[in-house]
């Protein structure tokens, strides 16, 4: 089956900054595909190019067979976009917003009214449909923001960090709706810097950093990059440099990075390595004030590949 999205060597620069540097990936139809990376990694620029808002410097992408360069209107006709920022008319009600956007997607008359009713049901705002968006909570606005993209039943939907800045309950609701979209047969391209979201939702994940795609695969495939290594986060009461050298030479330690008073270590087996780390710290005259052990996950993969934590 033809991929829903085929990205071919996309490049985009803003002056000296290479925002996207040779991105290539395929998104199979009916899957949730996540772009995972910190702020500034190039995720939104990629989405902007794929939704024809930005013209790439070079490269191309096909969305359901429509080229973003040669057939932008064809791309838009099969696409629903949930932007990172809430894009709604605050002085209009939820229903008025959905009705207006439905018209912009080509819906009219009874079909429009019926679809607006369905979407209000999907986003759980039937009871509040006449309320002005300006009076809504952040989570409710996010739900309307998503609802707009569903109006014309697009084959492909882009969701650019849709859970930023909302309460846990609304976040849970949005994640459930993303899974529901997949179950309804839609292809979802999802960007996030929350490892847990990518892990929970995605069939496939691509990790981005500084405009480059640095790893792609399923969650399990990506985790294998760091093997069975555990991740240990330590805080100490002194300069990290006094103990880093000692810990790097400790058996079982694969990588040590220091950031803002926190030391991140990738180790073979935390149970065996931890006593040695305490011994080395004592020898160096350093006191360990906290310890956090994490099993292999995408955070560890990102740390392994970039030397930095994902949340930074």
């Amino acid at each position: 089956m033809q991929p829903a999205i085929e990205v071919q060597n996309l490049h985009k620069s803003f002056g000296e900054l290479k925002a996207v540097d040779g991105a290539s990936f395929n998104v199979p139809q009916g899957e949730i595909y996540s772009l995972l990376g910190p702020n500034g990694a190039g995720k939104t620029t990629t989405i902007s190019m794929l939704s024809t808002l930005l013209r790439p410097d070079s490269g191309d992408a096909l969305v359901m067979g429509h080229s973003i360069r040669k057939d932008p209107m064809g791309v838009k006709s099969v696409l629903g976009v949930v932007p990172q920022d809430i894009a709604l008319y605050e002085d209009l009600s939820a229903r008025e917003n959905l009705t207006f956007w439905g018209k912009m997607y080509g819906l009219r008359g009874a079909a429009l009214k019926q679809r607006v009713d369905e979407v209000l049901e999907i986003i759980g705002l039937t009871d509040r449909q006449k309320g002005r968006v300006s009076k809504f909570s952040g989570g409710m606005k996010r739900r309307v923001n998503i609802g707009v993209a569903l109006l014309h039943k697009p084959k492909v939907i882009y969701m650019d960090e849709p859970t930023v800045g909302i309460d846990p309950q609304s976040r849970r609701s949005i994640l459930d709706s993303v899974i529901a979209l997949k179950n309804a047969g839609m292809t979802v391209l999802y960007t996030t810097h929350y490892m847990e979201e990518a892990q929970e939702l995605s069939d496939q994940i691509t990790i981005m950093d500084h405009g480059k795609l640095i790893a792609s695969g399923t969650h399990d495939e990506l985790v294998k990059i760091v093997g069975q290594m555990d991740r240990i986060r330590l805080t100490i009461n002194a300069e990290g440099a006094r103990v880093v050298t000692a810990w790097k030479s400790t058996p079982g330690v694969k990588q040590v990075t220091a950031e803002d008073g926190t030391l991140n270590l990738l180790v073979d087996d935390s149970n065996q390595v931890l006593p040695r780390l305490f011994d080395a710290a004592t020898t160096s005259g350093v006191r360990i004030t906290s310890v956090d052990i994490q099993l292999p996950n995408l955070e560890a993969v990102f740390l392994h590949l970039t030397g930095r934590a994902l949340r930074d």
Binding site: T52, K76, A87, L88, E90, M104
Partner: peptide, 12 residues
């Protein structure tokens, strides 16, 4: 309000 950018993603 970012609505203009959203309009540009529709087939308008």
């Amino acid at each position: 309000s970012r609505c203009l950018q959203r309009l540009l993603t529709t087939a308008t």
